Measured scan of single mutants.
Amino acid sequence: VIAMPSVRKYAREKGVDIRLVQGTGKNGRVLKEDIDAFLAGGA
Rank of each mutant, 00 (worst) to 15 (best):
R12P: 01
K14M: 13
A43W: 13
M4P: 11
A11K: 00
I18K: 00
V16W: 01
E33Y: 09
T24M: 05
D34M: 01
P5Q: 13
R8D: 07
K32P: 06
R19S: 11
Q22S: 13
K9E: 15
V30D: 00
D34Y: 01
L39W: 06
K9P: 01
K9H: 10
G42D: 12
L39P: 04
S6G: 11
D36M: 06
V30E: 00
F38G: 03
D34C: 00
V1N: 08
E33R: 15
P5L: 11
T24K: 06
G28R: 07
S6N: 12
G15Q: 08
A11D: 01
I18E: 02
A37H: 12
R12W: 15
L20K: 13
V1S: 08
K9V: 09
R12C: 12
D34P: 00
Q22K: 15
V21H: 01
V7L: 05
G28W: 04
G42A: 14
D17N: 09
D36P: 01
L20S: 09
V30I: 13
V16R: 00
I35A: 00
K32A: 07
V30Y: 02
Q22I: 14
A43E: 13
V7K: 01
G28T: 04
G42Q: 15
S6P: 07
K26N: 10
A3T: 08
I18T: 03
A40K: 13
N27P: 02
G15F: 07
R8G: 05
R29H: 10
A40M: 13
I18N: 00
G25R: 02
L31K: 09
V7I: 08
K26G: 08
V1R: 05
A43P: 14
K26R: 12
L20W: 10
V16Q: 01
A37P: 01
D34N: 06
I2T: 10
L39G: 04
A37I: 09
R8K: 12
M4R: 15
A43S: 13
E13A: 12
S6M: 08
G23V: 03
D17F: 04
V16M: 03
G23H: 03
R19M: 10
G42V: 15
A40Q: 13
V21D: 00
G25N: 02
L39I: 14
R29L: 11
E33L: 10
K9C: 07
G41F: 13
D17A: 05
Y10A: 02
R29G: 07
E13W: 09
N27E: 09
V21G: 00
P5D: 14
D17K: 04
D36A: 04
L31G: 05
V30A: 03
F38T: 05
K14R: 13
R8I: 15
V16A: 04
R19F: 09
F38E: 03
E33P: 08
G25V: 03
L20V: 10
R29M: 13
T24Q: 04
G23Q: 03
I18G: 01
K32W: 08
G28P: 02
G15R: 08
A3W: 03
R12T: 14
L31Q: 08
K14C: 07
V21T: 03
K9S: 09
G15Y: 06
A37G: 07
R19Q: 10
F38L: 07
G15E: 06
N27W: 11
A37N: 13
R29S: 12
G28N: 08
K26W: 10
L31V: 09
D34G: 01
G41C: 08
G15P: 01
V1P: 10
R12I: 15
K32Y: 09
R19C: 05
E13V: 09
I35K: 00
A43F: 14
D36L: 05
G25D: 03
V1E: 07
V30R: 03
E33W: 10
D34A: 00
E13Y: 10
D36I: 06
N27K: 11
I35Q: 00
I2G: 07
L20T: 07
V1W: 04
R19V: 07
A40Y: 10
K9G: 06
L39V: 10
L31W: 05
D36G: 03
G25L: 02
T24A: 03
G23F: 02
I2M: 06
T24L: 04
V7W: 03
K26Y: 12
R8L: 15
A37M: 12
I35M: 01
L31Y: 07
N27M: 09
I18P: 04
G41H: 13
R12H: 15
K9A: 12
R8V: 15
I18M: 06
G41I: 13
